[in-house]
């Protein structure tokens, strides 16, 4: 479970002065739920996820990941999350198997268990054919599967996925989506950011629309439709961006 209360991140900018990239953001992600953070580029999605993954320190507010405070207990938080970003962050000179071994060890997995689990994850994501080829030589789709395998390897209760399907073709994006859905079935708490409407509509149990650092609305698709009076998420989204936060957090 992820609990976020009035989370704020201010960046010091010489030219423009202090700027709140994430401003008073609050939401909650339950176990067994896919929670979508939807917003245009620069809305504050990545900064929010980076604070939850303990990469950035919040300027104000607080966030608990599985009951652990991101500021006070970053090590405990990191042990419980699987973090994946759109550009995968894979070492190009290592093979997928080497990558998994390293991250398994960093996640303090036992050697025997790690060996079995690597084989398991490789077959689960159909990576057998390229498990021992350097990441350098792999296609974007293959790399994203390696990234996902790395995220799921240590079986973390919390998944933080930052635009995991960006730049992928439709079939590969589909593979990733299916894995996210199956992770929900096993009770994981999934926080997911995207700017693709269809994906959010298809995957997410609840959606928060974020714009200019503020959360405009939070709810299920049904609730979003009811509040805005629009049928499609795209229209809801555009309306919220236009209204400039007038209906900020109407449904929680």
């Amino acid at each position: 479970m992820i609990q976020v209360e009035s989370l704020t991140k201010t960046f010091r900018d010489k030219a423009r002065g202090d700027r709140a990239v994430v401003d008073q953001v609050s939401f909650e992600v339950r176990d067994g739920e896919i929670f979508g953070l939807l917003g245009p580029n620069g809305a504050g999605k990545t900064t929010t996820l980076r604070m939850l993954a303990t990469l950035l320190k919040p300027s104000a507010g607080r966030a608990l990941v599985d009951g652990h405070d991101v500021t006070a207990e970053p090590a405990e938080v990191r042990r419980r999350i699987g973090f994946l970003s759109g550009d995968t962050g894979l070492y190009h000179r290592l093979t997928p198997r080497e990558t998994l071994r390293i991250f398994g060890r960093l996640n303090r997995m036992e050697e025997d268990r790690l060996r079995d689990r690597i084989d398991e994850v490789i077959s689960m994501l159909s990576m057998q054919e390229f498990a021992d080829i350097k990441v350098d030589k792999l296609s974007t789709g293959m790399r994203q599967r390696v990234g996902l395998a790395r995220t799921l390897l240590h079986d973390p209760p919390i998944l933080i996925l930052d635009e995991p399907t960006s730049g992928l073709d439709v079939p590969t994006a589909r593979v990733i989506e299916e894995f996210i859905v199956s992770a929900r079935k096993s009770g994981k708490c999934i926080l997911y950011s995207t700017h693709v409407m269809e994906e959010a509509e298809f995957l997410c149990d609840r959606i928060a629309v974020i714009h200019e650092g503020h959360i405009r609305i939070i709810g299920t698709m049904g609730e979003l439709k009811a509040v805005t009076g629009r049928e499609r998420l795209r229209e809801i989204f555009l309306e919220l961006l236009d209204s400039g936060g007038m209906r900020k957090a109407a449904v929680v």
Binding site: R50, R78, F83, H92
Partner: peptide, 14 residues
Amino acid sequence: ERHTMETLLASPAS
């Protein structure tokens, strides 16, 4: 530059 730093920092390594 290759954006691998984030992944490393999000791991349990201090």
